[in-house]
Every structure is written in structure tokens, then in C-alpha cells.
Design a protein around this nucleic acid. Structure first.
Lengths: 181, 181
DNA sequence: GCACGACTGGACCGAATGGTCTAGCGATTC
DNA sequence: GAATCGCTAGACCATTCGGTCCAGTCGTGC
């Protein structure tokens, strides 16, 4: 059974959703609260540093999400190219879920955040972990130059998402595997 | 001789700079004013719609800048791959100019803007013009499938800039031509 | 059933934001 | 040299922002 999400989870999810759609600075704390259905007091109980804490939690949650999608795509794949294909399709579906104004989860959540407090370094570390994750899958599947393969995938996905966003069409993401071959 | 920039130009430049570094929403009008060295009244004289107008002007200016760099790189190139190499190197230099927290000019200025008033569509149109521009160079240089070539270049540049930003190192951009080959 | 601590609920606050308004400056024209 | 007009200058304003604070509530251990 799905347990009722805790207040902390509700806040993290709402923040991740809104920060991705509108960006960190364009989103008010009140909006997050409204979407989560949680009063202000609770936020500052669970996240003493307020909005900045929320950004960190949302970034962590999103990095986990991407890592999970990465695993789901590559674990059953017979080789690297097929894993890439599955991964891109999964991302395309993720793109389509949020029809309006959906920035790339990775860049939006990792780079639009509080300017102080080492958020930037934290985000860079998360990205490096994702890169290593992708590289590990490439190595496991026997792809040559796995590190580079992972980097290329991430670069391509990042760029393709931007284009898809501009066009409001996931097609670029869907056709990315062909372009990478 | 270089003419003294007009107030309008000073404001546009300052806005483009700050919006790119920090994002639209994270930048206050006062900051733009301070960097431009212009009082508030002048802003609302030249840009009646205030910050939103500023975003449009900054986006236009940036799109022109990228188009100019594109032309500078591809005009003297003997073939497409060499043009790509030059273009990437020029972008890497642009990256290094703003040492701190520099988002990709394209995505930052085109996608982080006012939510109302068709800014999004305007930005999408600018991006399409850039794509067409790149495609035209590819066609002129006799590259096969020029439209696709242009798209691939833009996707790669967009993604590579993101990675470069995370690492604060333009290396990814510099080595992009090799990756594309 | 009482005491306690974790958590919720929301009124409240100072600061900062984007935007308005009007007085005045300086060049150009008659 | 007076009138005009494009533009500058910055005081001022309403609103919204993120954040604080404390009274109340609920579940748990005694």
C-alpha cells in the first residue's frame, strides 16, 4: 500500500515540481505551501533554512529520480545503445507529463537555486554522481570509453531537452538515440 | 571611433549580462540600473513595460550576438566540421569571459523570462532563427542533411555549456568538436 | 489521564521588489 | 531668449517576499 506522504515529502515534491516548472527564484514559498497543502509553520519546522533548504531537498530528490530512471533503462539493456534508447524514451515520457513550461529537471534544479551556501557545489556534486552512474552502466555493458559515453549522453540529453522545451514537443528527445548513433 | 553607448544600449547590455549570470527573476531592476549607471526614470522611459521589456531586449541582443559569432565562425570556414571547431572555440572564449556562474546565453536568456506576454513564444522564435541560421551555413558548406547538422550542433553546444558551467571549466566546450566527429 | 515533545496552523513583520510620478535639465527651434 | 520636447533624476508607493513567532493540537510514554 502507498503510505500517506509525510509533510516533509509533500513539501519536497511540491518544491521540485514548481522549481522545475518556473524556476527557484520565480517560485514563492507561498506557492509551494499551497501546492503541498501545508501551512507555513510546518515548512520552517522541517526545513529550518526555509527556501534554500527546500531547494537542496528538491535537487536531491530530482537527482535520485534521474538516477532511478537511468537504472531502470540500463539494467535490463543488452548493450549501451539500447540502454540509451530506452533512457531517452523514458525522459520523453517524463517531458510529456508536465505539458507546460517544463525545464530540464537536471539543469533547472541543479543550477537555478540560492546563490549562497554552497548550493552550487552541492549541485555540481550531484551532477558528477549522475555522470559516474551513467559511466558505470556504460562500463558494465562493455562500451568502449565508458566515461566519455556517459558524458556524451548527458550532454545530448541536456541539449535535446532545451530544444524540446522551446518547441513544446518531445520529438527531439525521442529521436536522440538515432542522432547519437 | 566608438560612440558613447546610448542609455538604451547601456540598459540592454547590463540586463543581458545580469540576466545571464543570475537569471531573470533573481535579478532586481535596481541591480540593472546600478550596473548601467542609469536612474530609474530613464528605464521606464525607454522600456515602458519595465523589466519584461528589458528581458525582450536582452534576449534579442543575445540572439544577435550568437548569430554574429555563428557568422564569424562559419563564413571563412572551408567546410562544416572546421566551422564547428571554430564556433566551439569562440564559445569557449565567451564562457571564460564571465568567470562566475555564467549560464548558457541561449537557454538562460531565452527561457528564464517573464511568464506572461508571449515572451516564451518570442524566445522560441529567436531560437528557431538561430537554428535556421546554422542550417544555412551547413547547406552553404555542402554538408549533407544541413538542417539536422544545425540541430545537432545546437543540442551539443547547449548540453556542453551546462556541463562546463557545473565544472567551471570550458574544457567540455573546447573538446566538443572532437566528440561530434 | 497527565505531561511532554513533535508538529501544525496562521497571524504578523521588516525588507525589498517592481513600478509611478513629477520636477528639472539641456539641446534645439523659432 | 523663450518655448518646446526628449530625456534624466530620484523620491515615493503599494505589494509581495521570505521569515518569525507563538498558541494550539495530537500522539505517545508514563
Amino acid at each position: 500500500m502507498t503510505a500517506e506522504p509525510t509533510t516533509r515529502e509533500k513539501l519536497t515534491l511540491a518544491a521540485a515540481e514548481l522549481f522545475r516548472r518556473q524556476g527557484y527564484h520565480a517560485t514563492g514559498v507561498a506557492e509551494v505551501l499551497a501546492l503541498a497543502g501545508v501551512p507555513k509553520g510546518s515548512l520552517y519546522h522541517h526545513f529550518p533554512d526555509g527556501k534554500a533548504d527546500l531547494a537542496r531537498a528538491a535537487a536531491d530528490w530530482t537527482a535520485d529520480l534521474i538516477a532511478r530512471i537511468l537504472d531502470d533503462a540500463f539494467a535490463p539493456a543488452p548493450d549501451w545503445p539500447q540502454g540509451v534508447a530506452t533512457f531517452c524514451h523514458k525522459l520523453a515520457r517524463l517531458f510529456e507529463l508536465a505539458a507546460e513550461a517544463n525545464a530540464c529537471p537536471i539543469s533547472a534544479l541543479l543550477f537555478d537555486g540560492p546563490q549562497e551556501g554552497g548550493f552550487r557545489d552541492h549541485a555540481a556534486a550531484l551532477l558528477d554522481r549522475l555522470l559516474a552512474h551513467a559511466g558505470a552502466h556504460a562500463a558494465r555493458l562493455g562500451a568502449p570509453d565508458p566515461q566519455e559515453k556517459g558524458e556524451t549522453l548527458l550532454i545530448a540529453v541536456e541539449g535535446a531537452w532545451t530544444l524540446a522545451r522551446a518547441r513544446r514537443d518531445s520529438d527531439v528527445l525521442r529521436r536522440l538515440p538515432g542522432r547519437l548513433a
